[in-house]
Computed example of a mutant assay.
Amino acid sequence: MHETKGDEARGIANLSALAALGDLAAFLAVARAGGFREASRQAGLSASGLSDAMRRLETRLGVRLLHRTTRSIALTEAGARLMDRLSPALDEVEAALDVVNGFRDHPAGTLRLNVPASVARLVLPAIVPEFMKAYPDIMLDVAVEESFVDVLAAGCDAGIRYEERLEQDMIAIPIGPRRQRMATAAAPAYLAARGVPLQPSDLLQHACLRGRFPSGSMSAWQYERDGKIVTIEPTGPLVVRLGGGVELAIEAAVAGCGVIHLFEDWLRPQLDSGALVPILEEWWGSFSGPFLYYPGRRYLPAPLRAFVEFVKARQSDIER
């Protein structure tokens, strides 16, 4: 009888420990996301559930961890100290639990990637469908944005960016084409009316359709020929936010509204159909393709490990 009570007590203690661990994980999700709504989206949990977990945790600890307003949250000094110590500890717990995933026939779980629109449009379509067929128990959650991102703070497992935008202290492996080009083009009707630019500097006299980064800075147009690099800051009647606004810029170019400068592969359908005509093609310089990057943990989560191995094998086949 006493042994049964002891077992029950241990069971209750274990449940309490698991509940506390869940509340700590909820705190970390909210702190990293900067709010309940974004944490809810990233973690796939309800905002009210996260809020309840925060109240339980603060009550248990007897200290406030978050300053809350109707629009945002901010860490208290105690919350900031807890987050600094908690992040590596919970990462180790996740890694330990994920070891069990290795005993499954197929890895399972969620893989969260953060990628720019160009990768979502030009790189992932050739990879994701085959990966999903190979790993049906893994759910891919892909966030598409252009800004510089701390993948861990954003609640992601890995990111895909170009070489100049890679985060420091990360492992990076090639993914997708190893060389790409930016293309400049315009509609035949536009060129008939305004003339064909013969030098990059001629674009300063043309209506150019430009892109703006989320930071507010404008995307410069860079050209290269015989070792000479020319950077142009053209003007024009349309500016779109890079990512979601790119399709609008393409449609405007096809309609004859101006000159567009974009990934060659993105414009390839319009170039092949004749809807757009290449301009200054001898000046189109190539650049290194994108990289998959992720933290250099000793133990990768099973979904990420499966994706890394899949990408490496695919790149090896391409290079043969």
Rank of each mutant, 00 (worst) to 15 (best):
His2Gln: 13
Phe36Asp: 04
Thr59Ile: 02
Leu82Val: 04
Asp317Tyr: 02
Ser201Gln: 15
Ala89Ile: 03
Gly6Ile: 13
Asp52Phe: 06
Lys133Gly: 11
Val254Trp: 08
Ser72His: 11
Asp157Arg: 02
Ser217Phe: 04
Ile173Ser: 11
Arg305Tyr: 00
Leu122Cys: 09
Ala306Val: 06
Pro88Met: 11
Ala158Lys: 03
Leu140Ser: 07
Gly258Ile: 03
Phe310Arg: 02
Leu271Asp: 00
Val151Lys: 09
Ala26Glu: 02
Asn14Arg: 08
Pro174Gly: 14
Arg178Ala: 10
Ser40Gln: 05
Tyr294Arg: 10
Arg210Gln: 08
Trp283Gln: 04
Ser217Met: 09
Leu242Ser: 04
Val246Tyr: 10
Val149Leu: 06
Ala143Glu: 15
Ala19Tyr: 05
Leu57Lys: 02
Asp157Cys: 07
Ala153Gly: 12
Asp84Arg: 15
His206Ala: 12
Leu65Asp: 01
Val230Ile: 15
Ile260Tyr: 05
Ser16Tyr: 01
Gly195Pro: 02
Ile73Gly: 00
Pro125Thr: 10
Ala9Gly: 12
Arg10Asn: 07
Arg210Glu: 01
Ile173Gln: 09
Gln42His: 06
Ile173Tyr: 01
Arg60Asp: 11
Leu90Arg: 04
Ala143Gly: 09
Asp52His: 07
Ala96Val: 04
Leu90Trp: 06
Phe148Trp: 06
Pro301Met: 05
Arg104Gln: 11
Pro174Thr: 10
Ala186Asp: 14
Glu3Gly: 08
Arg314Val: 03
Val99Arg: 11
Glu264His: 11
Ser286Arg: 13
Pro88Arg: 12
Val240Cys: 08
Arg81Gln: 14
Leu198Tyr: 01
Pro116Leu: 05
Met132Ala: 14
Glu247Gln: 13
Asp84Phe: 13
Thr70Tyr: 07
Val239Gly: 00
Leu21Ile: 13
Arg297Thr: 11
Arg81Ser: 12
Gly109Phe: 04
Gly227Trp: 03
Arg241Ala: 14
Asp317Met: 08
Met170Ala: 13
